[in-house]
Every structure is written in C-alpha cells, then in structure tokens.
Amino acid sequence: MINFMVDATKQGTTDATTFIGLLAAHGQSLYRFIYTLLPDVDQAQDVYQDCVMTLWEKFGDYRAAEPFLPWAYRFAHFKVLAHRKKNRRRPVQLDTEVLDILAEVQVEDNERYEARLRALPGCLDRLKQGERRLLELRYDAGATVVQIARETNSRAESLYRALHRVRRKLLHCIERRLGTEEAG
C-alpha cells in the first residue's frame, strides 16, 4: 500500500491528489473530532497521525460520492478506542459510552458543527485587543495559564476565568452570526 502511495504521489495520480486535497480541506475538522473524544493534545496528535496513515491505506475503498468527513470520522473513532485500550491505565478519561455518543452525534450533525466553526474568524476579529492578546499568549506562545500568570504578575485563577470568558464570548458570537445568517 505504501509503495502504491509513493508511486501514486510521484505520478500525480488522481487518488493521491484527491486524498491530499481532501486532507488539506478537512484535516482540521478531523483533528477537532479526535480532540473532542480524546481531550489531550499529545494523545490527540498521535491518534491523528495514525489515522491519516490508515485513511490513506483504506482510501481505495472510499467512494467519491460519499462525504469524506463522516467516512474519516469512523476510522478516527476506532483509532481513539484503540488508543484508549492501549493506554487504559490512564484513569481520567471520558467513559466509552459517552465517547461513542459524542462520536455518533458529530457524524450525524457534522455540517452544523462545521458551519459554527466557519464563523470563528469573523468573531476573532471582533475581540478586544486585550482578549485577543490573551488568546495569543495561551495558544500562539504556547504558555500555560500558570506561566502567563507568573509573567504578567496576575492570579492564575483570574486568568482561567478570563480565558473562559473569551471562549464563551466567541461561542456567543458564533451563535449570533449563525442566527443572523439563518434569519437572513
């Protein structure tokens, strides 16, 4: 399979080009899906990478008429379950039953969640400078809340709350925008 992939990529065959195009378009959604089931950055990244390789191996079975994400989500769901099984000694995890429901909801309602997150860039633009800066520190600079607190001489507790407020504000903005679009 791998050899085929190399050949296909070298030759620019339709399969490889299509796969890469689909992954470029939906990679973020796939990662988001995995992260909601496995809310740990390191583990989610590992599963994502495994998942991409498996998707490519199975890409021969994929039918072009079929929506890509629900197809990819099924593999990702199994990958998460397999990863959890391998790491079952980690005690703090979502229950398998909960995880299955969350996966199912997202497969069924994928378009609704996608539409909401498409509104995010516009909402980010509406943040105040300080709010935007806090997000940049947390996500761009990769600092923990404790690190930011130390550097800014602030209380970590206040920063937790501030970050939560910004995320909540973004979610409200997304809902408002979507509501406006639907009404319009």
Binding site: R32, Y35, P39, V41, R116, L135, D140, A141, L171, I174
Partner: peptide, 23 residues
C-alpha cells in the same frame, strides 16, 4: 453534549489556527 462538542472544538481550533508556530 452539544455544548461540550462546541467548546472543545473551539479550543482545538484556536490551538491550531493561532498556535504552534514559534517556540
């Protein structure tokens, strides 16, 4: 569940769209 999915999706998206480039 709906709130959870949206909140965690937002967190993951912020991480990937804003983060990870510098340090």
């Amino acid at each position: 569940r709906d709130r959870y999915i949206l909140y965690m999706s937002l967190h993951a998206t912020l991480h990937n769209t804003m983060g990870g480039g510098r340090a």
